[in-house]
Design a protein around this nucleic acid. Structure first.
Lengths: 349, 349
DNA sequence: ATGAAAGCGCTAACAC
DNA sequence: GTGTTAGCGCTTTCAT
């Protein structure tokens, strides 16, 4: 809460003017400073723990070392936290920082992140969507009108005035399924949520891709009673703990897992859309000899399914950061799709 | 990347001067504006999507709507992400935002967060420590010298020039243990990491508190082969996935879980320091009839132990935000200890 | 090699 | 009720 040291303070201390201090501190190209003067300035800088005020710099240079990060859902959900960590680290490499922004709407219809952009607080926005939702229409329009650098993650949409980063759900599902088939399972049960999102559609397609033309393999697709609104409940545990609703969902889910298991025999395989589902299956019928695969592990590696794709969340974050930095520097918009090649396969028993 | 609208633009549009616009936009107390003028200004504001530039405001008012958040470890670890979410939401209620800051050290020996404070980017710092580490000595000295608002979380230290927020590990352990004893277990195995941190010491004390004077109960304490450095490995899965080191640690851990289980009989209880350990025990010996308790669930509710304390991470974040806001507003330093009262107890079988 | 001064966008004390 | 102006801390052009 002290007043922090300013250019002037340093200048006074060193017996020079502000301009000279600026030259020294910034190593201004094409400016030469007498070594002795430079030393005096540096000594003063060190003595006063001087660091240039970022707001003043920004005001002058209009270059803002800060990127806004918005999460449609929230940071408590592990996959998003992992992403933001990737964003943070990549930004820091370039001397930028991540500013967490909300998406509440104010009286004027501006979301927090649009407001922050308009207020000049961030040089661009990374929007981390949910399975089925990206930025709202008005925010998109405003950002487009301002020609604001924008990266939208996980929305499986096309945008021509913003960049997109998405995961290759289809390819990942195809990959895991083919690995499952390599284990000579005759029957495969694909167990997915009952939510009609682009992501789940792509996953199912991927599974079907891999089974396509394999007349020796039977594919059964079943849905767990998890629709769009219960996804919220599923995720709420991370900040709200075990709510009644959550526990109820658990029970319903367990029941459907049991029913699904009745459709397979020992030696068959079960592929689950989401991580930790293996846990429910094993709990439902501990003694079954089934190959379990999961399409979306997020670091819950203790719930060892036999096979899983690890979601490249950290890398996705890095990609988003890369992309926004490129846009901020005047780069062209771009659509990236990140492969889900990070497969873990337990040794055969 | 457009030039954003400024006060002057609005003033020109409305046919008034900058001051008038400022009066209207800020509803400056004690300033009266003719309704008609006000309307013209507001219309211009709306037309241009004007929002005052935060850097200019900060420069003038030296009030910085932004708090720095530093995580000794990283955001990918779920308990920290949950905390930061709490911080974010609480700060937003007061019109502040969270700026993620690193703790790398620059050429001058300044950590990122000290640098950000000195540069006037944040009004204060929330430092989220690990089990055994807080801010480094030099950073502390600098922040003290600057009288910077600082909140240190999870370090179980005293500080007189900064505020602390800690969790009541001892009370939490005592609580869970007494709940375990209420189930009439004659023997309790407490299984803890082999790391001598303040937190683990407090937990063991809590367990002992509860058993104290109960001559009918036998307490056995055993350590898992997880020392200070392997905690890192344990946490790395969240951003690095399953490393060889991680898988090896898993195996070693599993072995020690097996050995520990040999010390108890059906009807006894096992209390684990960390969450998800129940999973290993159950996997090691699926058919044992043992009461499992965990001291530190972080939302991994699918790994249902019979009894657990949910870590109040979100609330801890809120508390840290509250505290930093109070300090920024000139409040006195304070030490908060958050109770671990969030107990989940599965119905008796 | 160094200094003086303008101006980035805003607020607030003061003048009219 | 509205305008003028100084100044927050910095960079940079132009003088010296």
């Amino acid at each position: 809460m002290n007043k922090r040291a300013t250019l002037k303070d340093v200048a006074r201390e060193a017996g020079v003017t502000a301009a000279t201090v600026s030259y020294v501190v910034n190593n201004t190209p094409g400016q030469t400073v007498r070594p002795e003067t430079r030393d005096r300035v540096l000594a003063a800088v060190a003595k006063l723990n001087y660091i240039p005020n970022t707001h003043a710099q920004t005001l002058r240079s209009s270059c803002i070392p800060c990127v806004g990060v918005v999460i449609r859902k929230n940071l408590a959900v592990p996959r998003f936290a992992q992403m933001v960590f990737g964003i943070q680290e990549r930004l820091e490499q370039e001397g930028h920082n991540a500013l967490l922004l909300g998406n509440a709407v104010d009286g004027r219809g501006f979301t927090d992140y649009v407001g922050a952009y308009l207020a000049g607080r961030v040089s661009g926005i990374i929007f981390i969507g949910t399975e089925n939702m990206g930025p709202d229409k008005k925010s998109l329009e405003l950002l487009q009108a301002e020609r604001a650098p924008l990266v939208v993650f996980n929305c499986q949409t096309e945008g021509d005035f913003y960049s997109t980063v998405d995961l290759d759900y289809r390819g990942g599902a195809r990959l895991i399924t083919s690995r499952v088939l390599a284990r000579r399972c005759r029957r495969v049960l694909y167990f997915r949520p009952d939510a009609d999102t682009p992501q789940e559609r792509l996953r199912e397609q991927g599974v079907r891709d891999a089974v396509e033309g394999r007349s020796d393999v039977e594919l059964i697709v079943r849905s767990a009673p998890i629709a769009l609104d219960s996804i919220e409940v599923w995720d709420a545990r991370y900040y709200a703990g075990d709510t009644d609703e959550g526990l109820r969902l658990n029970e319903v889910f367990m029941e459907s897992a049991r029913e699904a298991l009745a459709l397979v025999e020992d030696g068959d395989a079960v592929i689950a859309s989401w991580s930790t589902w293996t846990h429910y299956f094993r709990k439902a019928e501990p003694t079954r000899d089934i190959v379990y695969a999961e399409l979306a592990n997020n670091g819950e590696s203790w719930v060892a399914s036999d096979l899983y794709t690890r979601m490249p969340n950290y890398d996705a974050g890095v990609a988003c950061a890369d992309e926004i930095l490129s846009l901020v520097n005047g780069g062209a918009c771009c659509a990236r799709t990140i492969k889900l090649a990070n497969v873990f396969e337990a040794r055969q028993p």
